[in-house]
Every structure is written in structure tokens, then in C-alpha cells.
């Protein structure tokens, strides 16, 4: 008997997550006659889309799309919102689940609150800054001696982050993590912004690089004339892929878009020197002189 009870389809659905996808599913399910429990971790439904200005690819206004759905989900008779809550346990099987929900206290009586907003405006502690803990970074004297002149040179200039990163990349031959944290504090730029830029450009490296850099041109002309074979040769010879450094720190290989030496295709550049009309058979001879 008890078994039979358990296999009975309950006819209600729980949607976990009150973002745009969750809201739309709840609305569709509710419209088709299901009782929907819409569970959301944060105090309000809406999710990321409610924070966006425009949406891809049509550039439609995000709020214009989502607000009718928010209201719809809020007052649909078949939808019960459970906000500020999370799922802690799940049992049963398809058609008859039992969900354990942990609802966090709201400290406000939901039945009486009309959402007028008066309390938020009058709360005296609302504007207290929540400072992130500043990482304490100790640079070695050696690094400090290298970084300080670079920072001093560009401090206060508009758009100085790029030249600073370029010089650090040049001085250290890569971008050391502790130096990046240090300049983030010194320049008052978010570390995430620095990493965004540091990881975007091909010529920045976040790992130490070899004594010499082999740039293999993969421009159209060099490609048509066999540049890829040069790349494969170096790759196989040193066992490293694009952007990696050989174990003895001798070479870093990079495939670059175009060296602008198309008249001499296929071309490679070792450090600052360009070699043209390179053949697979004489490639290793060229590299021999770089120790």
C-alpha cells in the first residue's frame, strides 16, 4: 500500500533557480496546469538578466524582456515562490520526489511586507563599505628595484596600464604573479582587470620564458609556402607546443600571425633577428647559434 502511494504522480513541479530560464519554465509549466514551486537562492527572482542592460545579439533592453515575466511569475496562481532558500535533500523518483528545502530567515514577515522599500531607505547601516581584505604583498628587493622605476615613469598618466605591463613583460621576460598583485595595489586597478588584459594579448606571458624566443610566421604567405612545417619541426624537436618553453629554458616558441616579411616567406624571427626563406632542412642550423 505504501508503495502504491509512493508511485502516484504528484502533479507538481519544482524549478530550482529563479533566473530567466527558471522563470520561463515555471510560467510554461504553470500555464499547462502544473503546480510549480520556484526555488531561488537569493532574496529575489530575476538572476543575471535583471542586472543586464542589453542582450545579445539584438541589443534588446533586458529589463523590458524580463519584467513582465517577473510580475507574471509573482502573481500566477499556480506558482509558489520560495526565495532565500536552497535545496538540501532530494528523495523519491521521477513523478514523485520529496525535496528538503532550507529556507533562510528573512527577518521580515512576508505576509505583511508590501515591498514599499521604506525600510531599505531608512536603514542606517546600508551604506557601510564592505572592504575586501587587501592582499599583503612583499616583493623581493630585486623585483622592487625593477618595478619601481617603471611605475614612477607612468604613474598618473592616462591609459598607462598597457605600457607598464609591456615594460614589466620585457624586464622580467614574463609577468610574475606577485608583481601583478603589487601593481594592482599601487595603481589601484583591480587585479581581475589586469589579468583580463594580461591574458588577452599574445605577447604577454604569465609563465617564465626561455632565453630566446622563436617566432614562426604563420602569415598567409608563409603558410602557403610551408611555414607550418617549420613549426612542426621545432615542436617535434623540442617537444613543446605554441607558447611553451623548453625544459632547459633555452627556447620559447610562438607562432605569430605575420612578421611582415612576406617577400621572404617562409620566415622566422629569433629574438629580434629575422630569417627568410627558411627550409626545414636548415632550420636547426639557424637555431644552433642561440644557446
Amino acid at each position: 500500500m505504501a508503495n502504491k502511494e509512493n508511485t502516484k504522480k504528484s502533479g507538481s513541479v519544482m524549478v530550482v533557480g529563479g533566473g530567466i530560464a527558471g522563470i520561463q519554465s515555471s510560467l510554461d509549466l504553470a500555464e499547462s496546469g502544473f503546480k510549480v514551486y520556484l526555488l531561488e537562492e537569493s532574496p529575489a527572482i530575476g538572476g543575471t538578466m535583471a542586472q543586464l542592460d542589453k542582450t545579445f545579439p539584438t541589443n534588446d533592453c533586458a529589463m523590458c524582456v524580463i519584467s513582465p515575466k517577473l510580475v507574471g511569475a509573482g502573481r500566477h496562481l499556480n506558482i509558489e515562490l520560495i526565495t532565500n532558500a536552497e535545496v538540501v535533500g532530494l528523495s523519491g523518483e521521477a513523478g514523485n520526489f520529496t525535496v528538503q528545502v532550507k529556507k533562510k530567515p528573512r527577518y521580515v514577515d512576508e505576509d505583511k511586507c508590501t515591498g514599499c522599500g521604506a525600510c531599505t531607505q531608512n536603514c542606517p547601516v546600508v551604506n557601510v563599505l564592505q572592504m575586501a581584505e587587501e592582499p599583503d604583498i612583499q616583493l623581493s628587493t630585486e623585483s622592487l628595484l625593477k618595478v619601481t622605476p617603471i611605475l614612477d615613469k607612468y604613474r598618473g598618466q592616462k591609459g598607462n596600464l598597457m605600457p607598464i605591463l609591456q615594460q614589466i613583460n620585457q624586464t622580467f621576460n614574463y609577468l610574475p604573479a606577485d608583481v601583478l598583485t603589487y601593481i594592482s595595489i599601487e595603481l589601484d586597478v583591480r587585479l581581475s582587470d589586469i589579468y583580463n588584459i594580461a591574458s588577452f594579448y599574445n605577447s604577454f606571458s604569465l609563465t617564465p620564458r626561455g632565453r630566446h624566443t622563436i617566432k614562426i610566421c604563420m602569415g598567409t604567405t608563409c603558410y602557403v609556402k610551408g611555414g607550418e612545417r617549420l613549426y612542426n619541426k621545432v615542436r617535434d624537436e623540442f617537444g613543446i607546443e605554441n607558447g611553451e618553453t623548453s625544459e632547459d629554458m633555452r627556447f620559447t616558441i610562438e607562432s605569430v600571425a605575420c612578421l611582415g616579411c612576406c617577400g621572404l616567406a617562409p620566415a622566422i624571427m629569433v629574438d629580434d633577428e629575422v630569417y627568410g626563406k627558411v627550409k626545414v632542412s636548415n632550420l636547426m642550423k639557424i637555431l644552433e647559434k642561440y644557446k
Binding site: N160, M162, L165, I197, Y201, N202, F204, A257
Partner: peptide, 18 residues
């Protein structure tokens, strides 16, 4: 610093701005 998209004018300006 080696990014093709920087040839696009708005990207290029963002790059100059850091």
C-alpha cells in the same frame, strides 16, 4: 601586444586606454 582584433578601431582605442 599581439592581438589581431586591436586593428579594429574601437578595440584599438580601448587598448590605448588600457
Amino acid at each position: 601586444s599581439g592581438a589581431f582584433v586591436c586593428g579594429e578601431e574601437t578595440s584599438l582605442m580601448h587598448s590605448i586606454e588600457g
